[in-house]
């Protein structure tokens, strides 16, 4: 028995030795390559920008997506920077959400220069359509690289599937399940009680009667309408919504790190939502937005309400839902954020 215990002890010691050795080698020779492969180079960005800027602007693609005919090529963060006496820099990447912001913010050190964080509060990111999107696996993988653990531990987590890496089919199945069963706060008289029923009815064409001049179904318009339903028809349940949990935790982290926090509730295309689907949908969107504004204002966050601030024509995407704005739309949002920050 003693011999076996000795062997086990020795093996354990060897394993620790391997881990230390591997960590040194990994950090020196391979870590940067893995950051690149995991699409997690924002970590390098936050490591440097936190010491050179006063304000960090965390955003998805809304920050830097431009319209083809824009003459002003500034991002929203650059616009805020130009409107503010403080140095504002962006930490942004397409399709990221609060869970990524949270992990990145954890990397801000106590002696960092940055004192204010602006975080985009994207209404769409609270819906099942985004929460269970196929992009989630890649995002969660990158998230592992933002964790504050030794580099070799990050590698082990990636290699041994230590993150949410469900396959696309499973994510689609879960999303469908939410569409079929999630409660939406709609008038009692409203004929559809869930996304699937609503989507099927509108997708069938007869509900909205979108037709082309020839009398055929206007399929692009019908598909856009169903896309709005699948994207925005949800009622946020704070107790179970993972995005709420992430944004709540960001509040706690900011408090702990003594950082001023601004939530920038992004503009959605309310005009399109209204003209394509109708008041039932815009009411649900507004109700969710109001809930978020109240929740985070109560928690001491400065929430800038941009939900209806941008006109429909200032959205660059006409065929799907997004928060991509023309220069006029970006300036509107930047001004609202800069004004709110200077007032508070």
């Amino acid at each position: 028995m003693k011999k076996i215990l000795f062997k086990i002890g020795l093996a354990f010691l060897m394993l620790v030795l391997y881990l230390v050795l591997a960590n040194i080698m990994y950090e020196k020779y391979f870590y940067r390559q893995d950051l690149k492969e995991s699409d997690a180079e924002m970590l390098l960005k936050i490591d440097s920008l936190q010491f050179t800027s006063d304000v960090l602007y965390f955003a998805e693609s809304s920050n830097a997506t431009l319209a083809d005919d824009d003459t002003c090529l500034l991002t929203i963060a650059q616009m805020i920077d130009s409107l503010s006496p403080k140095k504002v820099m962006a930490i942004d990447h397409g399709a990221i959400h609060a869970k990524t912001y949270k992990s990145l913010i954890e990397n801000i050190k106590d002696d960092a220069k940055v004192k204010t964080l602006i975080v985009t509060l994207n209404l769409r990111s609270f819906g099942a359509n985004w929460i269970h999107s196929k992009m989630e696996t890649a995002l969660m993988k990158a998230n592992v690289m933002y964790e504050q653990i030794p580099p070799i531990a990050k590698r082990i987590k990636l290699a041994f599937n230590g993150f949410d890496n469900q396959n696309d089919q499973m994510r689609g199945h879960i999303m469908e399940d939410h569409w079929r069963h999630d409660y939406i706060h709609l008038p009692d008289t409203f004929p559809y009680k869930n996304v699937r029923a609503w989507d099927n009815a509108v997708g069938g064409g007869n509900v909205l009667n979108f037709t082309t001049p020839n009398g055929d179904w206007d399929m692009p318009r019908i598909e856009l309408a169903t896309s709005y339903i699948k994207t925005y028809a949800f009622t946020i349940v704070p107790s179970s919504n993972p995005r709420i949990k992430d944004f709540d935790e960001i509040v706690e982290i900011a408090k702990r790190k003594k950082l001023k926090l601004v939530y920038n509730l992004l503009a959605e295309n309310m005009e399109y939502a209204d003209s394509l689907v109708g008041k039932a949908l815009t009411d649900v969107m507004k109700e969710n937005a109001q809930m978020l504004i109240k929740r985070y204002t109560d928690k001491g966050v400065l929430v800038v309400d941009n939900l209806s601030a941008v006109a429909g024509k200032e959205f660059t995407e006409k065929r799907w839902t997004s928060e991509h704005y023309t220069q006029r739309g970006r300036w509107t949002i930047a001004r609202n954020v800069a004004n709110a920050m200077s007032i508070k």
Binding site: L19, M25, E37, A159
Partner: peptide, 22 residues
């Protein structure tokens, strides 16, 4: 035996694929 274990463990730690293929 330990030389082989060492090679395999270090390979697993440093060179295993991180793209997670099922």
């Amino acid at each position: 035996r330990w030389a082989i274990y060492s090679v395999l463990i270090l390979c697993l730690l440093l060179f295993s694929g991180i793209k997670s293929f099922p």
